[in-house]
Design a protein around this nucleic acid. Sequence first.
DNA 1: TCTATGGTAAACCTAACGGTATACCTTTAA
DNA 2: TTAAAGGTATACCGTTAGGTTTACCATAGA
Lengths: 188, 188
Amino acid sequence: MAAASKREQIIDQALKLFYQHGFNATGVDKIISEARVSKKTLYNHFRSKNELILAVLRKRDELFRNNMMRETERMAVQPRERLLALFDVMGNWFHEETFSGCMFINASAEFSDLKDPCHILCAEHKRLICDYIEELAKQAGAQDPLELAKQLNLLIEGAIVNAHVEGDLEAGQRAKRMGEFLVDLALK
Amino acid sequence: MAAASKREQIIDQALKLFYQHGFNATGVDKIISEARVSKKTLYNHFRSKNELILAVLRKRDELFRNNMMRETERMAVQPRERLLALFDVMGNWFHEETFSGCMFINASAEFSDLKDPCHILCAEHKRLICDYIEELAKQAGAQDPLELAKQLNLLIEGAIVNAHVEGDLEAGQRAKRMGEFLVDLALK
DNA sequence: TCTATGGTAAACCTAACGGTATACCTTTAA
DNA sequence: TTAAAGGTATACCGTTAGGTTTACCATAGA
């Protein structure tokens, strides 16, 4: 099998395990066993477990944001409606069986030092999501697109935590109702 | 030294370490060394590391909510103002040097199974906080105190994540502005 | 005064951790 | 055809994990 494919195989399995059980709780032995590769192969592709974690987070960021944007733009056409569709996309995610919170919030909990490369990647991910919301807010003609984006982003993060910690699957709808007020306010 | 005191000593040090570095990343050897007790003593008081974690979470819940209520009620007298003072209390917390996010959100990330005793305790903590906000909302004469409480709770959780993951210390103020809007709406 | 009780240090247990080394096998391209 | 590249399994490394055991010491209540 091609090297690139092995690499993806490792990342994909590591992503599943890290997401479901956490980073420190998941050993490399478990990863190679699930990915059906040898330890040598893993260490050929990644210098250390930490490098693998970074690769996993980068892939997750890519997958998550692509999916978020694709779904949002599929569900609504007008910018204002797209801002609100964001909450529906989140709500659907909460209802998935494998939902286990936001991987980047989870990672920040385990790598809490703000200067830790993993934590930096998490902050970057959140910033990119905020950028996307700001772009939608601009298209919708918001008075202060950045402020609206930060507000909606805060609502989304609150909803994710609500859904994960308290198991409140309706958090997406609640956040959407709150978001509607803010969007109306920002667009009027 | 009295037994009860040793127990508290262990819990206090474990709390610091778990909060700063996470649960799985903190070994019992580190805890006993920092708490200056022998391993035997730790295992006399706690059946396992997991039991210690539960004890730590219970203590953190008690300390955190007591402080939250005390500070909120010290900062404002009128129920409406107390609802908003909650965000100031959070904002001040974010600015503390030792701030490392919400310990219960962090714990939920490492013990992601909803049926895990640790996760259950985290959900309970969040519910108790919501109960307190609901009580304030009732006193303020909100039309739907539970709904308002859930909304403000979501804002608080969003602000905590914002502050921790992105290092945005102004998240408390942003959440307060959003909260003001919702409180006005719920009281009119 | 005696004896639990609960403390101590330190050795020890097994299992798992992240990571390396060895030896061999398969694919692929010059 | 051959040799490099990258795969495999497996054994191994030192360290650390959670947890137990041993032997001894200090205090306090009957």
